[in-house]
Every structure is written in C-alpha cells, then in structure tokens.
C-alpha cells in the first residue's frame, strides 16, 4: 500500500501523473507515425487477412522513378513560393496601411480583411471554381465587358495553377496581415518620433525601423504559411482536381489519389513521408534563420 502511495508522492510522482498522457500520445501519434514509416518499406496484401511483408527500398525506388512525384514536388514548390511571397507582401502592405492612425474606419477594415480567413477552404475552392468558370464565371464576364477575351483559368495547363494561387492568396493574406499588424503594434512609437526628428523619410522609416523590427514576426508568419501551404489539398481538389492533366497536382493530392482512391497504402505512405522530409528540411532552415535574426 505504502509503495503505491509513494508512486504518487515521491520522486516518481511526476512520471506517474504524466504516464497516461504519454501512453495516449504513444498510442495515437507515435505508433501510427512509425507504423506508416514501416509501411514505406513493406508490401501489404489483404488476401487471407492483413499480410505485411518487408520489401526494402522498393517503394522508395518506385517513388524516385515516378514522373508524377517530380511534377507534384514542382507544383507544390511553385504554389508555396509564389503564394507565400505574395501573401507576405500584400499582408505587410495592408498592415502598414492600416496602422496609420489617420485612416478613418480602421477597425472596420481590419475586421473586413480578416473575413476570407474565416471561411472553410472547401468553400473557397467552390467560390474559385465558380469565379473562374470559363462560360459563366464573373471574372470572364468582367473581362468580356472591358473588351478582353475570356481566359481558360482552370482548364489550361499554364494558367490553372495561378488561379489556385490567387484563391490561396485571397484566403490567407489576412493571416499574414494579422500577424504583421500585431508585430507593428509592438514597435514603440518613440522610434518613429526620434527618426522623424532626425529627418527620416517614409522609405527610411520602413527600411531601417519597421522592416528590421518586423523580421521575427515575419519569419513566424512565413513559417506558419509555408508549412500550411505545403499541405494544401482542399482548394485544389475542388477547383481543378489536380488537372488539367496533372498540371496542378500537389504532393498531398498525389498521396491522396494513390493512398485513398487506389488504396495503395504503402505507396501513399511513401509519398506522405517524402513530403514530411521536405517539410522538415524547409522548417529547419526557416527556424535556423529565425534564431539567427533573433540573436542579432
């Protein structure tokens, strides 16, 4: 009895109290993670029950020979780079604009700009699909009204990916704005006053005060968006389904098609892990950059 009580009072107390959480965490996250990793080196058959057979690097070799894999990486990187860059620039611009106390109705605009972020990505995907519809979409209707020919936004291999990027930018610029605006609010007003006394121009205020002091917030915002954009699937699934052809197929959509549509679990896991490795590398680089700037 005494020994049981000592488990909850002595030096083991902390571990005892933590153990349920650790067990749940192991069961729900760590085990599936390593099981999926194991699947990437295996072959699964359902004949006569579930049979898992070790096959070495066969699934990985198949991945590196697969043209869809390289296409998916390329599309994912284009979306991440273009969308996140544009979201950052627009978010920064909006944050600086709305931090100006002379603008009337700032509070209203702040709430208005946040609205897209509150929508479900599926809804945004359907909006994009309707907006960019060739025959009946309002975007082409406007183009026709001003004398331009309609554009095959979603059905041309060259333009489809940029239509998706536009919807992503529309939805997620508000998040950038929110983080950067909060960052701007933390800069002491004395810095600006002192600079103005010294005769600094608006550009110099931005170049030497705002931008450097916003770098930690910027890197945090970029890191969050990069990680999220690597995993984007819903908007693309609804707007183009990865097409035309495979011109908008990203890593997540590629993994979804193989893993769930074709029920090729091992190859689906291999694709998922390859995305995990890419995201891990990018995250480490961004975190190192953040740390470096914070130290400075």
């Amino acid at each position: 009895m005494k020994s049981i009580i000592s488990l909850f009072t002595g030096k083991w107390a902390g571990r005892s109290f933590l153990s349920p959480t650790v067990c749940i965490l192991l069961a729900l996250t760590i085990f599936p993670f390593f099981f999926s990793l194991w699947l990437t080196f295996s072959k699964v058959s359902f004949i006569g029950g579930v049979n898992i057979q070790f096959v070495g690097l066969r699934n990985w070799a198949r991945l590196f020979e697969d043209e869809r894999f390289y296409n998916a990486i390329s599309n994912t990187l284009i979306i991440v780079f273009v969308a996140v860059s544009m979201e950052y620039l627009l978010g920064l611009g909006l944050a600086i604009l709305l931090s100006n106390s002379k603008i009337k109705g700032r509070g209203f605009f702040r709430i208005l700009y946040l609205t897209p972020m509150m929508l479900a990505p599926i809804a945004v995907g359907y909006m994009g699909r309707m907006m960019f519809n060739f025959n009946r979409g309002p975007v082409n209707h406007l183009l026709r009204q001003v004398g331009f020919p309609p554009v095959e936004w979603l059905t041309n291999t060259q333009t489809a990916i940029y239509s998706i990027i536009m919807m992503d930018i529309w939805q997620w610029t508000p998040l950038m704005f929110l983080i950067l605006f909060a960052g701007l609010e933390t800069i002491p007003s004395g810095f600006f006053e002192a600079a103005r006394v010294d005769g600094a121009s608006r550009w110099q205020l931005f170049r030497y005060i705002i931008f450097p002091l916003l770098i930690p917030a910027s890197l945090a915002a970029i890191l969050i968006r990069v990680l999220e954009t690597f995993k984007v699937i819903d908007i693309i699934y609804i707007m183009t389904g990865g097409g035309p052809g495979i011109s908008t197929e990203t890593m997540t959509l590629f993994g979804y098609s193989l893993g769930l549509n074709a029920f090729d679990l091992v190859y689906g896991s291999t694709i998922a892990f390859s995305l995990f490795v890419i995201v891990l590398v990018v995250s480490i680089v961004l975190l190192l950059l953040t740390r470096r700037f914070q130290e400075q």
């Binding site: 004949i47 869809r68 291999t157 990865g242 097409g243 035309p244 052809g245 495979i246 011109s247 197929e249 098609s257 193989l258 549509n261 074709a262 029920f263 090729d264």
Partner: peptide, 22 residues
C-alpha cells in the same frame, strides 16, 4: 478483379495528361 481501383488509378492521370496535351 482484385486491385481494380489501382489499375484505374494508374490509368486516370495518364488519360488526363494525354487529354491536356502533355
């Protein structure tokens, strides 16, 4: 036959690429 979904999933992107002119 067993694996029908896998056979069709292998066909699907190739048809899409051919139709898209790739």
């Amino acid at each position: 036959i067993p694996g029908t979904a896998r056979y069709f999933e292998a066909l699907d992107p190739q048809l899409a690429m051919a139709l898209a002119g790739n």
